[in-house]
């Protein structure tokens, strides 16, 4: 495995009496696609938001936190009244990117939205809004990109395009950590999966190692959780 670009050591997070994460540890290498999966309430979004720096852990450490980490929240965190280019330019300026205009041009090319650059975001499809959302996360050219359920609310064709786009990013060396409810996407697009249940890591490894020869990844995943008492 190449050098670790993002890792967590015994991360825990408590909200009052409730323990959302307990001793979560993992490591992700450059260019790796790591999928975080698990049932509802498992702690996927909490883990990603801690990795993104939105909230601190109760205990534990994060390695690689000093480098640029791109963050793509579940719902597009962009302004509907601004155009694609204006959104990108605004966040490039706020990110203090050396040359905002160059960064905007680069992201317009990378997302394939150049012909929609002047359109208000509220007029774009959900898929295109999500592409802009991801593009904002990539403006600072981060080594790590965190995505919280990026394919939610997208149709199959848009999902396919999205994962191809993310695959291209990983191929370029970006570490991609994403959560998803679509188990099939994890099997297809992740190099490794991290299974969370009730705030604990119950599996880390390649998708094929999780299913144990079962052709139906989703059925095998449910059986795995049941066997582990979840």
């Amino acid at each position: 495995m190449t050098a670790v670009t993002l890792g967590a050591e015994r991360l825990s997070k408590r909200f009052g009496e409730r323990e959302a994460l307990r001793d979560v540890s993992f490591a992700a290498a450059a260019g790796e696609r790591l999928a975080i999966i698990g049932p509802n309430g498992a702690g996927k979004t909490t883990l990603l938001s801690i990795l993104a720096g939105l909230q601190p852990p109760t205990s534990g450490t994060i390695t690689g936190a000093g480098q640029a980490i791109g963050w793509v929240p579940q719902q597009p965190a962009v302004y509907g009244k601004l155009s694609v280019a204006e959104n990108l330019r605004l966040f490039a300026r706020l990110e203090k990117v050396a040359d905002p205009d160059v960064a905007v041009e680069r992201m317009l090319d990378q997302t394939g939205l150049r012909d929609r650059a002047g359109d208000e975001l509220s007029r774009l499809s959900g898929g295109n809004r999500q592409r802009v959302n991801i593009a904002v996360g990539l403006l600072s050219d981060p080594a790590v990109l965190l995505l919280d359920e990026p394919s939610t609310a997208l149709d199959p064709r848009q999902r396919e395009r999205l994962w191809e786009f993310i695959g291209a990013l990983a191929a370029g060396g970006t570490t991609v950590v994403f959560s998803t409810h679509h188990i099939g996407e994890a099997e297809r697009w992740a190099d490794r999966v991290l299974v969370l249940a009730d705030g604990e890591v119950v599996f880390t490894g390649a998708p094929a190692d999780l299913v144990g020869g079962d052709a139906d990844f989703e059925r095998a995943f449910v059986r795995f959780l049941r066997e582990h008492g979840h």
Binding site: P73, V78, G80, L94, E95
Partner: peptide, 12 residues
Amino acid sequence: EHAFGRLVRGLV
């Protein structure tokens, strides 16, 4: 617009 979380993540 769900932008607040993104803004306070080190931008402002």
